[in-house]
Write a protein that binds this DNA or RNA. Structure first.
Length: 1060
RNA sequence: GGGCGAUUAGCUCAGUCGGUUAGAGCGCUUCUCUGAUAAGGAAGAGGUCCCUGGUUCGAAUCCAGGAUCGCCCA
């Protein structure tokens, strides 16, 4: 019961945390928390691997503390929670980092630098900040096994990924397609749709309206007409081979000025203005059936036979002109429409006119109308755009130019605007398992729930095939080999590769794997096979982690089976299209099952201006600064309790400081109080182990604690750390500001029951708090109990581990506190200090309330500092009742007649209603000619305050104070004032709370007579062993001060007493 | 243009099943209490619950439309 360590009231939390960390290391607590659960049911957590090639930021702290709290909680609930760390090692982010380091920025430069050397650099850089990540992870108390972390660059990991792809291929779901893909010309690679999703930015692009003169009259089209098209990407015009019209859209020939233009009727006013004159109307179908054509191509040589108007079912009249320029190499719709019109063959790349090189520059075919070459020009260069527009103007083709603001995809890493670009690419046919993914999603509990059928479900319903190949260097090589006859074979293990090729590789990354060849296994084909050049989308790597982290199924298949699916994963919301998706897709493709049961989605951390924090913007808040200033518990507490995590945070250091002040310091100070007085009462407590107070207040404190524990568990089970944490804070506030405040005297006097109660409550709090603030929780546990090596090895306090609950007592205490609040309000109204005792408080209450207040009457009396508490039944003595309808109960009953019912109730005699309620009788009213009998809960009785009393009221009870003072009360008031003054003097003199003193008082006669009358009280309160009133202070009394009480003089002299 | 979410006091956020007079913390003003707490307590100032319409006896809450912000997708 006496804690071994004394406690510093103003403990610096960051340094406390360092000592707790040292203790964990010394006692090997994390490992022990797993060992002790050997054989217990597993609760599965998957770590979504971060990339350690950059510094960790505050947003990483957010996800890592949420990844920590639930595993800690589940461990305390009896589960074994293995926490295998993981690192995402491959991919463009790493390559880009290295490119920057090397000062290069193109694939050509990488290849001249050498793939081997480049990948070696990548391998090094992946862990450039590993040490800082590890330090931060430990410092914030994220328990995860970093020594046994999986790494996506490991040979074993790569082999599992190969297995997965071979398996997907075996199911016929891997194919090479020639499609228009979002493509980063700088990185020279296609991006998956979920990568594209990461990089939308609002930009202003020039949009142009271009005249395309008719090639020949056809149907409604006449020789001098021109088709008007609109594009926001003038750079695609050299790829133009056709124009699409909506078959059911109405088009017109419209005269404006001296020219005749063809465009959608719905767009005439917007594009041509009000002066346009409509000459003729016809449908898009008429145009295409008549074989309308225009003079093409643009910006390149071509047969002068005219380019066709074709059907496009995607054409709308919401913007543009209703005539859409078709460049099959640069748009998915274009590609489909051109295929449908028979203009291109999607399986034969040569039929697709693509004048743009993979590096995003024009090839030699592109030239201006006067023969100047555009070869080598980067297509997204604004200067080029301007030249193209000037060129159009010079040819008389530009009708109009406007700025167009829209959201356009950019490369999520390098920021280059993406282009849509036709190229061969490898796909996984995820659209064929769409229904299975949707079914899997149904089994997942999302937090918040709207993700399930909102953002994520929506995304799944619109699923398109996953483009998984990347024409890059540092990644898991695509394990597809192709022979010169075009057969392909997917390798599913290193053993298979070795068997087929005879070569053994120590490293299966590029470029080593590129050199491996073998004979085509297809029957009758003996051609050599070599690997296709691509690597795999990194998201596929991370999506494969459920099995690849164990090297399953090539090894440890049992481990994988045991630990699939995950009970819990947690990442930021932006992973909806990232890891959340890749995990689900891979698991559905391979196992037809969702890989996780519960997902907590965290919102974004915004900076003070509401901007997203990200490395690329450089506006991250340095986590170390927060940790050094406030500590990890404070950081964690802020994330857990300041708000529900999914809506995002507006991050500020001040908010963290507030949490420290309001919660951590309050908790610490309660703990400090216990330890301080436990030490001061060493003797009284030494033989009183674990006393249980039976006092109402003790039982109340334990009941509140038990109640809170159940709520915390219930909320944590629902992944609602916020409400759980706030409940703990509420409990600590009640313990500190009510239990301890009301029980102080018992602690001064060394009452073992009080110590036992507070100790028990604090120990439960430390266990409830352990998952949230693991440091301070452990410190309190260790000093107050310490039976186990750490609080994190304890069982979560529930059931038999909790003290008895007493709902009636809790309710009674709540009513008593309410009464005290009213009484203090009445005092404030009368402007009488609490120190001045009053003769009587009159409390109006009935029934349960009265019983409750009577039970707690001593507390009420002391808190209000009155001699007596008197009860009255009715309001008669203090005021009158008002009676009102209870809408909640009567509303459903009376419906439309509710206003009448309320009127009838308001007209009742409140005194009679009060009497009826008291006697448990029904209350009769007539509404719209019908009789009704109401019960007590159908009416609400409210006190009506009369004038001239100091009364505070609330609902059915009220408190009034007798304000008249007699000499006796006045003397006691003075005595209390003197005590207060002496206490202040003690503090000023720098005495410790348990120091005994010699005290001498002098001054106004009235004060001295009060001091004499309450001599014992005064001496007792101030711990004065000697008390001299109106005598000479001894010369040894080192501290003297003069003060005034009610404008009367008081001289205080005191000294620490040598006697004990 | 579409989807999802948000909008409540100066700031940060609660608000249960639709129920009477919408709350807390911080900050501010005044008072007060301290033998743990730069803490606590009381009072006060501070609200168009984003707007408009609808459903309902009754709407911060439900519905529709709109505005603004964020994220995502075209």
């Amino acid at each position: 019961m006496i804690p071994p360590r004394e406690v510093d009231a103003h403990q610096d939390l960051p340094s406390l945390e360092q000592s707790v960390l040292a203790r964990w290391r010394e006692r090997d607590v994390f490992a022990e928390s797993l060992r002790m659960r050997e054989g217990a049911p597993e609760w599965i957590f998957y770590e979504g691997p971060p990339t350690a090639n950059g510094r960790p930021g505050s947003h990483h702290v957010l996800s890592r503390v949420f990844k920590d709290i639930y595993p800690r909680y589940k461990t305390m609930r009896g589960y074994r929670v293995e926490r295998k760390g993981g690192w995402d090692c491959h991919g463009l982010p790493v390559e880009i980092g290295v490119e920057q380091e090397l000062g290069i920025s193109s694939k050509a430069e990488i290849e001249s630098y050498g793939i081997e050397a480049f990948n070696a650099k990548c391998r090094e850089s992946v862990f450039a900040f590993l040490e800082e990540w590890n330090l931060l992870t430990e410092r914030i108390g994220f328990w995860v096994d970093l020594d046994d972390a999986y790494r996506t660059l490991d040979e074993s990991y790569i082999e599992s990924v190969w297995w997965a792809l071979a398996e997907i291929d075996r199911k016929g779901l891997l194919y090479e397609g020639n499609k228009v893909v979002p493509y980063c010309p700088r990185c020279g690679t296609a991006l998956s749709s979920h990568e594209v999703a990461l990089g939308y930015q609002d930009v202003v692009d020039p949009s142009v309206y271009v005249r395309l003169p008719a090639h020949a009259p056809a149907g409604p089209v006449q020789a001098q007409d021109a088709f008007l098209i609109w594009t926001t990407t003038p750079w695609t015009l050299p790829g133009n081979i056709a124009v699409a019209a909506g078959p059911d859209i109405e088009y017109v020939r419209a005269r404006i000025g001296d020219e005749t233009l063809i465009l959608a009727a719905a767009r005439v006013e917007r594009v041509l203005g009000e002066d346009a004159e409509i000459l003729e109307r016809f449908s898009g179908g008429e145009l295409t059936e008549a074989g309308a054509s225009y003079r093409g191509p643009l910006f390149r040589e071509g047969p002068d036979g005219g380019s066709m108007i074709i059907v496009g079912d995607f054409v709308t009249t919401e913007d543009g002109t209703g005539l859409v320029h078709i460049a099959p190499a640069f748009g998915e719709d274009d590609f489909r429409a051109a295929t449908a019109a028979g203009l291109i063959d999607p399986t034969d790349p040569h039929t697709i006119i693509n004048p743009v090189e993979p590096d995003g520059t024009y090839d030699k075919r592109v030239r201006s109308h006067d023969g100047r070459s555009y070869e080598g020009r980067f297509v997204k260069d604004p200067a080029l755009t301007q030249e193209l527009i000037d060129d159009l103007t010079a040819q008389g083709l530009l009708f109009k130019r406007e700025d167009y603001e829209h959201s356009y995809p950019h490369c999520w890493r390098c920021g280059t605007p993406l282009i849509y670009y036709a190229k061969p690419s490898w796909y996984i046919a995820t659209s064929r398992v769409r229904e299975a993914m949707l079914a899997g999603n149904e089994t997942v509990h999302w937090h918040p729930p709207h993700i399930k059928h909102g953002r994520f479900g929506d995304w799944l319903s619109n699923n398109v095939d996953w483009a998984i190949s990347r024409e890059r260097y540092w990644g898991t090589p695509l394990p597809v080999w192709r022979c010169t006859s075009g057969h392909t074979h997917t390798i599913g293990s290193f053993a298979e590769l070795q068997e087929r090729s005879g070569s053994e590789l120590a490293d299966h990354h590029r470029p080593y794997v590129d050199e491996v060849q073998f004979t085509c296994p297809h029957e009758g084909c003996e051609q050599p096979m070599s690997r296709v050049p691509e690597v795999i989308d990194v998201w596929f790597d991370s999506g494969a982690m459920p099995f690849a982290q164990h090297h399953a199924p090539l090894e440890h298949e049992d481990r994988f089976q045991q630990r699939f699916p995950a009970d819990f994963i947690c990442e930021a919301l932006d992973q909806t299209r990232g890891w959340f998706y890749s995990l689900l897709a891979v698991s559905t493709l391979l196992f037809d099952q969702a890989p996780y049961r519960n997902v907590v989605c965290l919102g974004l951390i915004l900076d003070a201006e509401g901007q997203k924090m990200s490395k690329s913007k450089g506006n991250t808040v340095e986590p170390w600064q927060v940790l050094d200033t406030y500590g990890a518990d404070a950081f964690r507490w802020y994330f857990f309790t300041s708000k529900q995590p999914w809506d995002g945070y507006r991050f500020s250091q001040e908010a963290i400081g507030e949490g420290v002040r309001l919660f951590l310091k309050q908790l610490w100070s309660t703990y400090f109080f216990y330890v301080l007085y436990a030490h001061a009462n060493r003797d009284a407590l030494s033989d009183a182990e674990h006393a249980q107070g039976e006092d109402d207040l003790d039982r109340w404190a334990r009941s509140r604690t038990a109640n809170t524990a159940e709520l915390v568990a219930e909320r944590l089970d629902a992944y609602d750390a916020t409400t759980a944490g706030r409940a703990i804070a509420g409990l600590v506030d009640e313990l500190s500001n009510w239990y301890v405040r009301r029980s102080r005297r018992r602690f001064w006097e060394g009452d073992p029951a009080a110590f036992g109660t507070l100790r028990e409550c604090l120990l439960i709090v430390s266990k409830l708090l352990a998952p949230f603030c693991p440091f301070v929780a452990d410190e309190i546990y260790d000093n107050l109990d310490g039976a186990l090596a750490s609080v994190h090895l304890c069982e979560f306090p529930l059931g038999e581990r909790l003290p008895e609950q007493d709902a009636a007592l809790e309710e009674a205490m709540a009513i008593a506190r309410e009464t005290v609040r009213l009484g203090l309000g009445a005092r404030a109204q009368a402007k009488i200090k609490v120190r001045q005792p009053l003769a009587e408080a009159v409390v109006v209450a009935d029934g349960r309330e009265r019983a409750a207040i009577e039970r707690m009457v001593e507390i009420v009396r002391e808190e209000l500092n009155v001699r007596r508490v008197r009860f009255v039944h009715a309001a008669d003595e203090l005021g009158e009742y008002e009676v009102k309808a209870n809408y909640r109960t009567l509303g459903p009953l009376f419906g439309k007649e509710m206003p009448l019912a309320a009127q009838a109730i308001a007209a009742l005699d409140p005194a009679k209603v009060a009497a009826a309620v008291r006697n448990g009788e029904g209350i009769g009213i007539a509404v719209a000619g019908r009789e009704h009998t109401l019960s007590a809960e159908d009416v609400i009785l409210t006190m009506k305050a009369p004038d001239g009393y100091s009364v505070e009221r609330e609902g059915v009870h009220a408190v009034a104070l007798e304000l008249a003072l007699d000499d006796d009360l006045r003397r006691e008031g003075h005595a209390r004032e003197i005590v207060h003054a002496v206490q202040n003097a003690r503090k000023t003199a720098g005495l410790a709370v348990e120091d005994r003193i010699a005290l001498s008082l002098d001054g106004d006669e009235r004060l001295l007579s009060a001091a004499s009358a309450h001599r014992d009280y005064l001496a007792g309160e101030t711990l004065a062993l000697e008390l001299t009133i109106a005598g000479q202070p001894q010369a040894t009394m080192g501290y003297r001060e003069q003060t005034r009480i009610d404008d009367l003089e008081l001289m205080i002299a005191l000294a620490r007493s040598e006697r004990d």
